[in-house]
């Protein structure tokens, strides 16, 4: 078969390796991978201690990416993220000292604890894929993947990301508590950090770049475009949402669906691919008009995915 089958052959081991470290979260692992393949950035929103950091670290190791972690705190300065120019006495010039953002996988931990100023430094770097200091642009490495984590905003001492900045993240996922049986396994098993250390890179940088390049080439049939458009129209016309999805949101939804299809070794996108990524891609870009009792995610499924027929 084709590129798609190759992709799956390359990515399946990554998925199973990550599965061995973060138990029972295959769906989230696949979403994170798809996000990376679609060259987007990932926002993980959950309580401390459910494995956000571990997921980011494991991703970096399994994919052979350079890894940096920035702990966002309220006194973090933009320079702490992107770097700073320092006068070098020997050369008599300003030298740029690269900040932690110059890594292929950057974990921005508890991003909503920092001030909006520090947040926007990171978010600009995510968007531009380069950093400009003192008039000089410094390109960020390729691939460049930011995993930001945030605590639910009802916790104290947080600066919630504004909607326009949430839009910079391709997906937002939640990890949630593990199932009881898996939690027991977690308690019995070895320390996660040891496991991480034993994880060897499963992909080469070149391979990953090729996979990213393959995402936009995944076939999109006309009926599927119809489906994506129908979903977008539903968010705009049904009256259930404050405002509909933007054209950009439609593009990234399609891109994420292509990545998901590639991850599953399909040469084309099927409606199920769209449905699989829809909640992660769309939920943080939409606001329900009236909060109905129950989980917001369930509402999204009911009002969007279950309301639009598959063509």
């Amino acid at each position: 078969m084709s590129a798609a089958a190759d992709a799956r052959r390359a990515l399946d081991p990554v998925v199973s390796a990550l599965n061995g470290i973060i138990l029972g979260k295959e769906r989230q692992i696949r979403l994170a991978l798809a996000c990376l393949l679609a060259r987007g950035h990932l926002l993980i929103e959950d309580l401390p201690g459910v494995g956000k950091t571990t997921l980011a670290q494991a991703l970096a190791r399994a994919l052979g990416l350079s890894y940096q972690r920035v702990q966002f705190t309220s006194d973090l300065l933009p320079a702490d993220v992107i770097g700073v120019s320092v006068y070098d006495r020997t050369s008599g010039r300003f030298e740029f000292h690269r900040g932690p953002v110059f890594a292929q996988l950057v974990l921005a931990d508890e991003v909503n604890r920092a001030t909006p100023k520090a947040q926007s430094a990171l978010l600009e770097a995510m968007e531009e894929r380069q950093v400009t200091v003192d008039g000089h642009s410094h390109a960020l490495p390729e691939p460049f993947f930011v995993v930001a984590t945030q605590n639910p905003s009802y916790q104290l001492g947080t600066y919630p990301l504004p909607e326009s900045q949430l839009d910079r993240f391709l997906m937002r996922i939640e990890l949630g508590y593990p199932a009881a049986a898996l939690e027991r396994e977690l308690l019995r098993g070895r320390d996660r950090r040891e496991l991480l250390a034993s994880l060897a890179p499963l992909l080469e940088a070149e391979q990953l770049r090729a996979l990213q390049a393959a995402v936009p080439a995944v076939h999109v049939a006309d009926p599927l475009l119809d489906y994506v458009q129908a979903l977008v129209r539903q968010t705009r016309d049904s009256g259930h949402f404050q405002s509909g999805l933007s054209p950009r949101a439609a593009i990234v939804l399609l891109r994420a669906s292509q990545a998901w299809a590639l991850l599953h070794g399909r040469p084309g996108v099927v409606p199920e691919d769209v449905q699989a990524v829809a909640r992660a891609v769309v939920a943080h870009r939409l606001e329900l008009r009236s909060a109905v009792d129950g989980a917001p995610g369930a509402d999204l499924d009911r009002l969007l995915l279950e309301a639009v027929p598959v063509p």
């Binding site: 099927v270 409606p271 199920e272 449905q275 995915l305 279950e306 309301a307 639009v308 027929p309 598959v310």
Partner: peptide, 9 residues
């Protein structure tokens, strides 16, 4: 088939 159900599902 539910209207919103994909063929694979």
């Amino acid at each position: 088939r539910a209207p919103a159900e994909g063929p694979l599902d």
